[in-house]
Design a protein around this nucleic acid. Structure first.
Length: 905
RNA sequence: GGGCUCUUAGCUCAGUUGGUUAGAGCGCUACCUUGACAUGGUAGAGGUCAUAGGUUCGAGUCCUAUAGAGCCCACCA
């Protein structure tokens, strides 16, 4: 308990880094298997290794840290595993950009060198975000930091791929994928951005063989005509029934196209006749499969027309070809009309190039078998979503799940562990030797590994167990998995959350669980129990935070200006479960001011501690229960309620409620009332012994408040907590969280205190409304309804003195006429502030009239209600009784006020 | 096109299963530097809870429709 001057204004800069270093160097965040304790595990949603901290991360990681610190203080063996994602395309892009600047490119370097370069890049620039998380105060177990390209995680990826391949859950197939001609890779559906675009709908005439008729089809992408292999109509369409089974002739090319019928066709769209291009449109592809149509690929990997098209178009860029083809169609009179058409065009989320549906060889995961159990555990509540409305979205997706295209034509990532023999046969294997065995090839024979790498999510979906050492068996894996809470953004519910559920359930089947026995039940197999979907952070105009809009404050700047605690608290305070948050850095004033308030409350208590106790050591181990007065009993009751409400709110993941509960308790109950009332004793006539008890008790309550607040505001609470008394090397990080075990919520105490507060408020109101200077002493006349109420004024007159500057209280009987006064009614007690030149009689009359009319309106509304026979009959008796009681009170109060008004004359 | 969410004070938002006089922060007005804090204190003004119906003794809360804002999924030639 070193005595030092604390500055009037809390300065986060001076304490935050200091404490973070202390916590980290003392390994306070480190978790180890401890069978005597219950584990509480959280895996971080691994941010892109290229990433820097955004407000989204701040929200996400603040929530995780609040939960983790709370559980840690509650005595759980708490493990928060941090790490980063190798982010295939994003990272490769970053490095390619750097190469371009240096005047070279990856093709010049070659694959091996390029990948080396990426590793170098990662060493130098990657993981910034991980360092930034420390600034925020995140209590991750840094000894467990992982990267999705780590050796261990790569093992997991290979193991999973090989197992799935051998089980038939991974297959290779031709498929329509979203192809980015710029990156020359397939993109998952989620990597394509769709935007409305003004295009044209072109109507083209196809001659029908053996008739004089022709059909007209409409298309937005005329160049795909060159890949048409059928024409399709709806079987119910009377206009075209006679054509089904005949043959159309493809313009320009002259290919013979069967005319087929399928329900997929919407007769009301355009002409109701559609051209079918199985190799270049996903729907046509499916149609093609149903009708056994030929697939003709007309593009190369860069989006140019290939050798499958007539010579004059070969080698043209797809858009160039479109122009030429339209011209040619027009000159042959086959372009019937062109009309403007707004449609959605998909673009590469990285480079903005228009994606091309493209037929290519890709690897896929069969999702249906994996989806079944994953759907079940969410429906049966083994995994709970917060807010739970996401369950519906999840169900819908899982019920309509499609196979997952996992191959990517880039170099940075986990290379697909498939090996090809010279004869083209192939097998998935953990290494070449295994591949040779599987392919029955001699040792040392030449193998070719698949060129593609896996989708980034193929490593992310293993995160809850790959980070714990799987496929190796370990105590860590047994103990820390299943994890507890997952905190993530709702937009990755499908590509991450759902897949983690599938992976954990599939690959941990039979692995030893917490009991040591093989896992079989849903409870043992899920990757986590609760999923918290965070809000989306927007700017004050409601726009998404984005780099291009420049509306995203840099969290580090915000921390520098307001402090990490302020940012954390503000974000928690503003983020209701499941709603978007409008944020601007000025909002952090809420948190900054709060931190400052707490700081000064602490300063005040410590000043008095020194004043009262001198240099004597005090201990806060135990609540002193001697010399309790109303304020003491009240604050302890309020503390008990606060602990309960806070724990309840956090258990439900209502961080905004939890933060408000603490804000109200600390600012309003503790600072506004308790600290003020405790002054009557610090500065009063009490003995030194009593004062000592009182100050220690106040410090004890404050200590409890700091513990409660620590998960939200770790830095300022630790700093203050250390100052309160000698902690002997202990940190608040692992101090027990308040349980309220020896505290009780006492309704009568709270009622009594509320009465005192109401009286003080009423006097203050009279002061305010009548412009009575705060320095002016007030004499009060009180007409109390009962002796008990009257007693309060005697016992706690000092409260009135301190908080409303009431220097004298005179009790008067019902018969006694009060002096000419400004009056108010509190409950059933009347208080009078004699005028004596203080008060403007007219102003007082207005004030009373206003109050009387307000209460009369209430009286009226209740009378109407009670006059309604069906209300009295059908409403519960308690409700009716309550209304009656209210009515009696209002009437009595109105009477009293009316009397006072009359008295003014 | 399918699904979901939101609309409460000038601004940003709370408001649990329908039942006190609808709350908070910021902003605004007035007063106050009173022995922690002006990043403070005290008081005050400000709301027919988007609109229209309905259920109910009773609706900010439940149902339907409408208007506006937004999100997710699909991506129709």
């Amino acid at each position: 308990m070193k005595q030092q001057e604390l500055s009037k204004i809390y300065s986060p800069k001076d304490v935050e880094d200091k404490w973070y270093e202390y916590w980290e160097s003392h390994k306070l965040f480190h978790a180890t298997v401890n069978k005597d304790k219950k584990p509480y595990t959280v895996v971080i949603p691994p941010p892109n290794v290229t990433g820097i901290l955004t407000m989204g991360h701040v929200l996400n990681n603040t929530i995780q840290d609040v939960l983790v610190r709370w559980k840690r203080m509650q005595g759980f063996e708490t493990c928060w595993i941090p790490g980063t994602d190798h982010a295939g395309i994003a990272t490769q892009n970053a490095v390619e950009k750097a190469l371009a600047k240096a005047g070279t490119n990856r093709h010049e370097l070659g694959r091996e060198k390029f990948v080396e370069r990426v590793w170098e890049w990662r060493k130098e620039y990657g993981g910034t975000i991980i360092r930034q998380l420390r600034k925020l105060g995140a209590s991750c177990d840094w000894d467990r930091e992982r990267f999705t390209m780590d050796e261990g995680l790569s093992e997991a990826v290979k193991e999973v791929f090989v197992r799935m391949f051998d089980k038939g859950l991974v297959y290779r197939g031709k498929y329509i994928v979203n192809w980015c001609p710029f990156h020359q890779t397939a993109l998952s559906d989620d990597e394509v951005d769709y935007a409305e675009s003004n295009g044209n709908l072109y109507y083209v005439k196809y001659r029908i063989e053996g008739t004089n008729e022709s059909g007209i089809v409409a298309t937005t992408r005329p160049e795909t005509i060159l890949g048409d292999t059928a024409v399709c109509v709806n079987p119910k369409d009377e206009r075209y029934k006679h054509l089904v089974g005949r043959t159309a002739i493809l313009p320009i090319v002259g290919r013979r196209l069967p005319i087929i019928a399928d329900d997929y066709i919407d007769s009301s769209f355009a002409t109701g006749m559609m051209k079918v291009t199985p190799a270049h449109d996903p729907n046509d592809f499916l149609l093609g499969q149903r009708h056994n149509l030929q697939q003709i690929n007309i593009l190369d990997e860069q989006g140019r027309m290939n050798e499958a098209v007539p010579k004059q178009y070969e080698g043209l860029d797809r858009f160039e070809c479109r122009k030429r083809l339209l011209k040619d169609l027009e000159s042959q009179g086959l372009l019937v009309k062109t009309e403007p058409h707004v449609h959605n065009v998909g673009k590469c989320y990285r480079c903005g190039t228009v994606i091309e549906p493209y037929l290519s060889d890709q690897w896929f995961v069969r999702m249906k078998p994996l989806a079944k159990p994953a759907l079940r555990v969410v429906q049966n509540g083994t995994i709970r979503f917060h807010p739970d409305r996401h369950v519906k979205v999840y169900e819908n997706w899982m019920n309509n799940i499609r196979d997952w295209c996992i191959s990517r034509q880039i170099w940075w990532g986990h290379r697909i562990p498939v090996y090809y023999a010279p004869d083209g046969t192939y097998a998935a294997a953990r290494n070449e030797a295994e591949a040779r065995t599987k392919l029955k090839l001699p040792d040392g024979s030449v193998l070719r590994q698949d060129e593609d790498v896996l989708d980034t999510w193929f490593s992310s979906w293993l995160w809850p167990f790959s980070t714990l050492g799987w496929p190796k068996q370990s105590e860590d894996l047994q103990y820390f998995n299943p994890t507890d809470a997952l905190v993530t953004a709702p937009d990755i519910i499908f590509f991450w959350v759902a897949r983690m559920i599938m992976a954990n359930m599939e690959f941990l089947k039979g692995e030893p669980g917490r009991s040591g026995k093989p896992r079989t039940t849903d409870e043992e197999l899920v990757p986590f129990r609760d999923v918290y979907f965070t809000s989306i952070i927007r700017d004050l105009q409601g726009r998404k935070m984005s780099k291009s809009l420049g509306n995203s404050p840099d969290p580090l700047d915000v921390i520098a200006e307001y402090g990490a605690d302020a940012l954390r608290f503000t974000v928690a305070y503003l983020a209701p479960l499941g709603q978007d948050v409008l944020f601007a850095s000025e909002k952090c004033e809420i948190g900054r001011n709060f931190a400052n308030k707490i700081w000064n409350a602490g300063r005040f208590l410590m000043l008095n501690r020194t004043e009262i106790c001198g240099d004597n050591q005090i201990t806060l181990d135990k609540l002193p229960t001697e010399h309790l007065d109303l304020a003491d009993r009240w604050i302890l009751s309020r503390l008990a309620g606060t602990i309960k409400n806070f724990n309840d709110a956090l258990s439900e993941f209502h961080l905004n409620d939890a933060s408000k509960i603490l804000y109200d308790f600390i600012w309003h109950d503790f600072c506004d009332w308790y600290v003020e009332l405790v002054k009557t004793r610090f500065y009063g006539e009490e003995s030194a012994e009593v004062k000592q008890t009182v100050v220690v008790r106040a410090l004890w309550v404050f200590d409890q408040a700091l513990r409660l607040l620590h998960p939200m505001m770790p830095f300022v609470t630790e700093e203050l907590w250390q100052h309160l008394t000698d902690r002997k090397g202990q940190s608040l990080v692992r101090a027990p969280f308040p349980t309220g075990a020896h505290l009780r919520i006492e309704p009568t105490t709270e009622e009594e205190m509320t009465f005192v507060q109401d009286v003080i408020n009423a006097v203050r109101n009279i002061r305010g409304e009548n412009n009575i200077a705060p320095s002016k002493d007030i004499h009060l006349q009180v007409r109390a309804a009962g002796e008990k109420k009257g007693g309060v004024f005697k016992t706690y007159g000092k409260y009135l003195n301190k908080l409303a500057r009431v220097v004298a209280v005179e009790m008067i009987s019902a018969e006694t006429k009060p002096k000419l006064a400004s009056s108010a009614v509190v409950g059933d007690t009347e208080i009078f502030v004699p005028l004596e030149g203080l008060i403007d009689v007219n102003a007082e009359r207005v004030r009373l009239e206003k109050e009387i009319s307000r209460i009369s309106a209430l009286v009226q509304s209740i009378e109407t209600k009670l006059a309604n026979a069906s209300f009295v009959e059908r409403a519960p008796k308690t409700v009716v009784d309550k209304e009656k009681e209210k009515l009696a009170n209002f009437i009595s109060n109105a009477e009293k006020l009316k009397k006072s008004l009359k008295h003014l004359e």
